[in-house]
């Protein structure tokens, strides 16, 4: 036992020299870490192994997580689900959709036109990064990617408004269509701001909530302006 205790103090000594292990009687169950098939399955149920499931299920599970977060944005009831397990798939999806929908406008004909794809991308991502840095510098308790996730998911009402605007613009671009677009964009801008502040404002010290909310307001206002001023080329 004294020898084995000595061995225990040098745990990997036996690996380098096989001849030593022949001298020392091996005691106990040494096969625990590798595990039998039963213990492996037990661990797998705890940690949710994704190795042996179909690819379709993996993708569907992620899509379901993204979808459930969309629902959280639609009903912003101060749930922490959007904050707890963040992902950036949803924001990427929304940002690409918005930028694609903003293409094909009057922008392409002359250089004084609307925002290009890259400009939308830069405004959305750098805008949310700057807002996040601002809230961190002001002493917010929320983490960097949580804040990016919330700001990205809350673009969803504006992306939906953009889709509605494209449909309305198919019908024509007169005064009525402008009023309809104005109402839709204003409503979705308010919705975006309200939803994101419902998630973000709680992480701030009480005297600084307005300082954090104002940049968020400005961010969605600018995106709303881009959506509203989109005019298609004939």
């Amino acid at each position: 036992m004294a020898v084995s205790a000595d061995e225990a103090s040098r745990p990997f000594a036996g690996l380098s020299d096989v001849s030593i292990s022949e001298d020392i009687p091996v005691e106990g169950d040494i096969s625990v870490p590798m595990g039998t098939s039963s213990s492996n399955r037990q661990r797998g149920e705890d940690e949710f192994s994704t190795l042996d499931e179909p690819v379709k299920e993996t993708i569907l599970r992620d899509l379901r997580a993204v979808g459930s977060k969309f629902i959280h944005v639609l009903y912003p009831k101060r749930s922490t689900a959007l904050l707890r397990d963040w992902d950036l798939w949803g924001p990427l999806l929304l940002c690409v959709t918005l930028a694609l929908l903003l293409q094909g406008g009057a922008a392409d004909s002359d250089d004084h036109g609307g925002p290009q794809f890259a400009e939308v991308f830069v405004i959305v991502w750098f805008g949310s990064i700057i807002i996040t840095l601002n809230s961190k510098l002001l002493g917010g308790t929320i983490s960097f990617f949580q804040s990016l996730c919330v700001l990205g998911y809350c673009i969803m009402p504006l992306t939906a408004a953009m889709a509605v605007c494209r449909i309305v613009l198919v019908g024509g671009s007169g005064t009525v269509s402008f009023i309809v677009r104005l109402v839709v964009v204003t409503a979705s801008f308010g919705w975006s701001t309200f939803a994101s502040t419902a998630f973000l404002a709680d992480s701030q010290p009480p005297g600084r909530k307005a300082l954090v909310v104002y940049p968020v307001f400005l961010f969605y206002f600018v995106i709303g302006w881009m959506v509203l001023t989109f005019s298609p080329s004939q």
Partner: peptide
């Protein structure tokens, strides 16, 4: 941009552009 839009509102051959640059 908005003031340009207001100035050119009545013109028939004017096409609005957001002037994002």
């Amino acid at each position: 941009n908005f003031s340009n839009f207001l100035v050119k509102l009545g013109k028939p051959n004017h096409k609005y552009s957001p002037q994002f640059g």
